[in-house]
Design a protein around this nucleic acid. Structure first.
Lengths: 253, 253
DNA sequence: ATGGGGCCTCACGTGACGTCAGGCGCAACC
DNA sequence: GGTTGCGCCTGACGTCACGTGAGGCCCCAT
């Protein structure tokens, strides 16, 4: 009960050439060949092909797929769980994009123009691989980065919930301080900056005052960070930077 | 308020090279250049970029994206509606894939093995563009195909509901006939075959007895059609083929 | 025995970038 | 006021995942 290239290509919705290619690079070598050299795909081959197509659709390059599938100490159930998680993540991202498009439609039909930044953030912030790759490029190699990465990887859902709640409260307080007209070098703002520093230290990496100051600079110099902050309140990025600097003078040295 | 390549690449989560590429092929030419030849992206450019990235993620090739976006008599709201529809379609497909993975997990943890066909159907049947491309390859150029395509394109939701209901009822009746042991060349089965032929004629293209016979052959020779039929009841594909042949002799000539 | 459809192996083409190489622009730092 | 560094520029070649023939077996059906 083995199938020919044509039959498999029909079943899987791919071309014969693709199957040839996968054979060439050793990703999917048919279990048998007829005496005439015809490829014959067994049931096991088909299962592997389905896995390949799934990971391919998730955006993995073929050589990585080979590594993933040929890992000997990973059984099929684990593969399925991985796939499931990646798929749901992708689905969530898609839902956000859809929501963004809906917002844009609403805005458009009301005659409001969204800022381009607001619309591009979707791509800048949510594409998981791309974003991580970019982070790697900017921060790769630094100690803070690797520490942060190790910690974050071990977080449970509950941890994440706590983390984001804490971050949200902090942002809210900062917005309130800004809108309340409190000076960035006042005690309240400095306290908030200190809370911010401790937040980073607790959840991501040990952040001393100097590092904190670098972060503050980044908030105003990197347009992505600036946009994220200023989305909550205009001028927030600069306000936070100032508060951080003031707090650094107070507590640092 | 224009941005440099680096700033745009950061915002959009893409590389500088990609922006250069889009400039080279004329997909996204920055609105301005400084005297030194530096690219400067305006707000309009960013909006266009966002549209490009959306269509790109939907799998469109870049030249097609250019055609879509440069279509003069399509305003932004229409674009958004198109995007929204395509995205929701993609989301639905993703949900089906997720559901399939969940089924596979359940089956696996219960120790049941799914047939490879069952798993590959997902890719064979639901990838919209690929599938259509394959249909084009197999049937492109035939008159029946173009006719079917024209008609199907004009169907409303209500039409589709009626169509699928009719098809489901027909399938059910065929399954009942098969399971009831009625001979495929008996009057009842032939009547059902005739109903099938009229169903095709009504909804897709004028289907005479000869064409109907070809279709019957296809049901048993093309594993995809066979699988679709036999999923309802084992042996259904062959049963339908026989009934069609018998009906052809009765009514055809 | 003779097509015709499916399959084979080269082998070059293509789309969407990645990746240097070599060099200008400009603000900062010494 | 050089020079260092970073960002930007233009070629130009490399890469990945195939697409697209060309030329030639295989095999079943007429």
């Amino acid at each position: 009960m083995s199938l020919s290239v044509g039959q498999v290509s029909g079943l899987a919705g791919i071309t014969v050439r693709t199957l040839h290619h996968y054979d060439e690079i050793g990703l999917l070598i048919p279990g048998e060949r007829t005496s005439a050299g015809y490829r014959r795909y067994t049931d096991g081959d088909l299962i592997r092909l389905q896995q390949i197509l799934l990971y391919r659709e998730l955006g993995f390059p073929l050589d990585e797929i080979a590594v993933i599938l040929d890992d000997p100490h990973v059984d099929e159930l684990t593969q399925l769980r991985r796939q499931h998680e990646l798929l749901t993540r992708k689905s969530e991202r898609l839902r956000e994009v859809i929501a963004a498009v809906e917002r844009a439609m609403q805005a458009r039909s009301l005659g409001i123009a969204l800022t381009p930044q607001e619309r591009l953030e979707l791509f800048g912030d949510f594409q998981p691989e791309d974003h991580e790759a970019e982070v790697e490029r900017r921060w790769g190699g630094t100690e803070a980065y690797t520490q942060s990465r190790r910690r974050v990887a071990s977080y449970t859902k509950a941890d994440w919930a706590e983390l984001t709640a804490e971050a949200a409260a902090l942002t809210e307080a900062l917005v309130a301080a800004l809108k309340g007209g409190l000076p960035p070098d006042g005690a309240e703002a400095m306290d908030l900056a200190e809370r911010h520093r401790l937040h980073i230290s607790r959840w991501f990496y040990t952040c001393d005052h100097e590092h904190h100051r670098c972060l503050g600079e980044l908030y105003v110099s990197d347009p992505r960070f600036t946009a994220t902050h200023d989305a909550h309140a205009p001028g927030l990025a600069r306000y936070v930077r100032s508060a951080i600097v003031a707090n650094g003078f107070r507590g640092g040295r």
